[in-house]
Design a protein around this nucleic acid. Structure first.
Ligand SMILES: [Mn+2]
Ligand SMILES: [Mn+2]
Ligand SMILES: [Mn+2]
Ligand SMILES: [Mn+2]
Lengths: 228, 228
DNA sequence: TTAATTTGTTAGTCATAGCTAACTTTTTTA
DNA sequence: TAAAAAAGTTAGCTATGACTAACAAATTAA
């Protein structure tokens, strides 16, 4: 009885909250996750998150002290990772087999990730021959919930003269993803930082013989691997 | 403004109720659908169905008089048929691409049918090259909600000496479907009625050089096309 | 180190979708 | 045709997961 596993007794909402906390925890490992921050992220009121957090603490997925920050138990992390696995496998399926573009997949995957069937997702994984990355460049956890963290930084953190490779993009905004495609950037694109303008932090970049200027906000959503 | 289409504003429950009414209406076209019958079918209380029916009437999907029987409007039928299309396409996908057996698909399809994305289901249809029937032999409505009703009767309605072909099976029970496979019956099997026993209505049948006795209850769930 | 601001909590409300128990209407049977 | 049974309705309750408004604690700034 080492692991009381509560097999799949979670509602869609409970799952989404656990996933959100997980995303916020890995997004910036140094800063702990607060209640209002979570409310912001999920676009619900702080009262709602407070309420749900109580429930998730009672069920043993979340730990926190009163007026303190949030953390996930191993069980909570496990639920979140399984949800992320499902989300990313579905996104991959939609892109690679059903003619979806990378900006169309996220919203549908938000629904599909809540389908409860272990066999479904493991067979989908096998059907696609165990893909390692989703359409936005993010890693896909395997059936045991194991995953490799690819070292990545934002494009905005680089300096003039740096050269990097685009490894992933934030998939939250349809407009952003369309914009990335439109200017000709794609996963694996090699990008050189020509100039970082002090005035508004906009960045002149060069890739595939194209020169573009992108905003700080844009560069915050592009994840890269520094090459030079 | 001929068709006020209320694009997808329905909850999972509302969708399930409309589908259930539709199924009951086609199951036996002669008998109108009652509130308690619907409650039975959905395994909820008559109070619950009564409540939901009110809502669906207010939204223009159901028609009925007080203390009277239920019927669907064109809008209600359209929702039901779209749901059935999704359900059967997903069942087909699970069987043909993800190694599910025909007794494993129904419960997962019950979840998948509620995913809201027109593109998803039409692309899934295209991906499978527009299948006409699901794994249980039931027709799949096309993207316009059109479908052909295959004439079918239950095996239990036949008499000694009749010969028929198995065209579909009721997919509601996992035990039943496993049983069908185990005795060697499959879609398209040619079945001859050797004897109908008066005592308990059990039926001796022959197919593929196999002779079996099946109960009335079993035969009620097997749909056939009379050949001789 | 006090005051302002931010963050977190609580109380009370609403909608959805179940339930039971009691009641009314309709249908069937005697 | 009157009584019994079945079918349908209503009232009132529960749980989930949102919300607002009011309040308390913790943090930051003055
Ligand atoms: Mn996504
Ligand atoms: Mn989700
Ligand atoms: Mn089915
Ligand atoms: Mn369903």
């Amino acid at each position: 009885m080492t692991n009381k596993l509560n097999l799949n007794n979670l509602t869609k909402s409970e799952e989404d909250y656990l996933k959100a906390i997980f995303q916020l925890l890995i997004e910036d490992a140094s800063v702990k996750v607060g209640n209002n921050q979570l409310a912001d992220y999920l676009k619900v009121s702080p009262a709602s998150t407070n309420n749900m957090i109580k429930k998730l603490k009672a069920k043993g997925y979340v730990v926190s002290e009163k007026y303190g920050k949030l953390d996930l138990t191993e069980g909570g992390k496990s639920v979140a990772v399984r949800l992320i696995r499902k989300h990313r496998l579905w996104e991959t399926f939609l892109c690679n087999y059903l003619n979806f573009t990378w900006d169309e997949v996220h919203d549908v995957a938000e629904q599909l990730e809540h389908i409860k069937s272990r066999k479904l997702i493991d067979e989908l994984d096998r059907f696609m021959d165990f893909p390692k990355k989703d359409p936005h460049g993010e890693m896909i956890p395997n059936a045991n919930g194991e995953y490799s963290i690819v070292p990545k930084i934002t494009l905005s953190s680089l300096s003039e003269g740096d050269v990097c490779q685009l490894v992933a993009v934030n998939d939250g905004s349809v407009h952003f993803l369309k914009y990335v495609s439109e200017i000709g950037l794609a996963l694996s694109s090699e990008i050189k930082i020509l100039e970082v303008r002090e005035f508004d932090k906009s960045i002149r970049i060069k890739f595939d013989n194209t020169i573009e200027t992108v905003t700080r906000k844009f560069a915050d959503n592009v994840f890269v691997n520094k090459v030079v």
